[in-house]
């Protein structure tokens, strides 16, 4: 009897774990097996044609890259500065506690609400219109708490003795941060930045009303234009397009490219972290 119960417990725990692996397996298998055949050099270097029933996803890829770029250069300096303040300057105080609580709550706000905020602030109040700039800034705000948390973790791993040594040599606190702390924490920060990019590349809800378009017939690097994005392209192809069945292979292809892009970024981040950890 006892043995059966033990076996049952084993199955319960192992089964749950296997189930989680199975879920990932099914997701990847379904998308890759049906999507890989659509992915080709042609697919990622051409414009959509014939009313988006043929051709490639080039403008969506360019749009996603441009969007991620704007998101990153906006959120990274802010995020790092905030993390530096929290980890290097701030003493435990009410203010510090409020800042930390704000960051944790910002991380919990649904992404669609960031979309509303971006619409009210960037599109309307600042008159940036629906554009890749508005969308990038909105995603930048969304990424802030994430960048701050990962950067702070990286800063925490720098031993205090290093800071003390520099300070004892007569460097000011800023010089210590600039010349010792940040360079040493760089791999950790970089990991966070890359993971943020991967999240930004996959987000859809915040860009819905801040600048993403179904289709654009040319490529321009100008940030005050509307743009196409990979995740939105997938959404559009699978729910909004006129002939959903006809474009299903394109939707699978887009999903494959999107997931591959996100995974590549994650693997790069993982590699940096791994290399850095083993060095210590």
């Amino acid at each position: 009897m006892k043995k059966i119960r033990h076996l049952f417990n084993w199955i319960l725990l192992l089964g749950s774990t296997l189930m989680v692996c199975l879920i990932l397996g099914v997701i990847l298998y379904d998308i890759f097996s049906k999507g890989m055949s659509s992915v080709s050099w042609h697919f990622i270097t051409r414009f959509p044609t014939n009313g988006m029933t043929k051709g490639g996803i080039l403008p969506a890829m360019i749009g996603t890259l441009l969007l991620t770029f704007i998101t990153t250069i906006f959120s990274v300096p802010f995020g790092i500065a905030c993390a530096v303040y929290l980890n290097e300057y701030a003493r435990p105080s009410v203010l510090t506690n409020i800042i930390r609580a704000s960051i944790r709550n910002l991380a919990g706000i649904p992404s669609i609400i960031y979309g509303l905020f971006g619409l009210a602030l960037f599109v309307q109040s600042l008159r940036l219109g629906t554009s890749v700039l508005s969308a990038g800034l909105t995603l930048g705000l969304l990424s802030l708490p994430y960048i701050i948390t990962t950067t702070e973790e990286a800063l925490k791993r720098i031993p205090n003795s290093m800071r003390e040594a520099t300070l004892a040599l007569g460097a000011t606190q800023f010089e210590t941060i600039k010349d010792v702390v940040l360079p040493k924490a760089l791999p950790g920060i970089l990991t966070g930045v890359i993971l943020t990019m991967s999240r930004a590349a996959g987000e859809t809800a915040p860009i819905l009303f801040t600048g993403v378009a179904f289709y654009i017939n040319g490529i321009s690097a100008s940030p005050n234009q509307e743009f196409m994005a990979l995740p939105y392209h997938l959404y559009m192809l699978s729910t909004q397009h006129q002939s959903i069945e006809e474009v299903r292979p394109l939707a699978y292809g887009t999903a494959t490219v999107l997931i591959l892009l996100v995974f590549v970024l994650n693997i790069v981040a993982f590699y940096i972290r791994f290399k850095h950890r083993t060095k210590d």
Binding site: I27, G202, P231, Y235, A255
Partner: peptide, 8 residues
């Protein structure tokens, strides 16, 4: 699993 975009 956490990295897969919600739209996918």
């Amino acid at each position: 699993l956490a990295a897969i975009p919600s739209v996918a």
